[in-house]
């Protein structure tokens, strides 16, 4: 589904990704963990070209994103992204947040888009909030709306950039539950997270990133219970 070959990314002279090779299969949930500054968010943001790639190749479902001829808007419309700070549009109701892209990008009518949005709101447990504005929602509710908004485009892949890091602890559970449901339905997901519990329980594979490379990867059991690399061991001992 996703293939990344020798991905390099510079910010100015600073090399933040130093040759990433990774593969994500269809319906697989891959969790990316690692210390801050390890490049894991940058890596994720390269996957829908929110960050310009310096060199290397990214392929998603047959589209080579790094090919300059690729229609990046078309690719992005099939890759959902959920942000740490939700990034809901504050001037639009929940329903309008969800229907904007289906109407403007996919060309659905307002009625069609709203009809499609209702079950998504149901799915994230917020069917009563369709007409609410983001400012009246809690952080957890905002993030669930953001997930519904991404799902409205019917994406092939979902990218999550620390989706629970900005939430109060008691609100994390609801968001993780929605993500677990998604995983069960077979959504292909790449999740940058600090929620080791989630990575253990839901992740099919875990990538440990440090200093701009993937230091170690394997099943959650391999990574959490018998980490091979010394950096992985020291990172896990600090947070577990």
């Amino acid at each position: 589904m996703i293939t990344v070959k020798d991905l390099h990314k510079y910010f100015g002279k600073n090399e933040v990704l130093k040759g990433i090779n990774a593969h994500v299969n269809e319906s697989e949930v891959v969790c990316v963990i690692g210390p801050s500054g390890s490049g894991k968010s940058t890596f994720l943001r390269c996957l829908n070209l929110l960050e310009e790639v310096t060199s290397g190749e990214i392929e998603i479902d047959g589209d080579v994103l790094t090919d300059p001829k690729v229609d990046i808007n078309a690719v992005r419309s099939q890759v959902g992204m959920v942000f740490q700070h939700f990034n809901l549009f504050p001037h639009m109701s929940v329903l309008d947040n969800i229907t904007l892209a289906p109407i403007k990008v996919k060309g659905l009518s307002k009625e069609e888009a709203e009809e499609a949005a209702r079950p998504l709101l149901d799915k994230v447990g917020l069917s009563d909030k369709a007409d609410a504005y983001p400012e009246s929602l809690s952080g957890g509710q905002k993030q669930r709306v953001a997930i519904a908004r991404s799902l409205a485009m019917d994406p092939k892949v979902m990218l999550f950039d620390e989706p629970t890091s900005a939430l109060d602890p008691e609100l994390v559970g609801d968001v993780l539950q929605v993500m677990k449901d998604l995983a069960k339905e077979g959504m292909t997901m790449v999740v940058v997270t600090h929620e080791m519990g989630f990575a253990k329980e839901v992740g099919d594979r875990v990538l440990f990133m440090d200093e701009g490379i993937i230091m170690e990867e394997g099943s959650p059991t391999q990574i959490f219970d018998m980490p091979q690399h010394e950096r992985t061991q020291s990172f896990l001992s600090k947070i577990l």
Partner: peptide, 18 residues
Amino acid sequence: IEKGQHEAGRAMGLTQRQ
């Protein structure tokens, strides 16, 4: 306007203009 607003729009497939 927060940078995330722009990113959220582009990430959904909206063009720069939209």
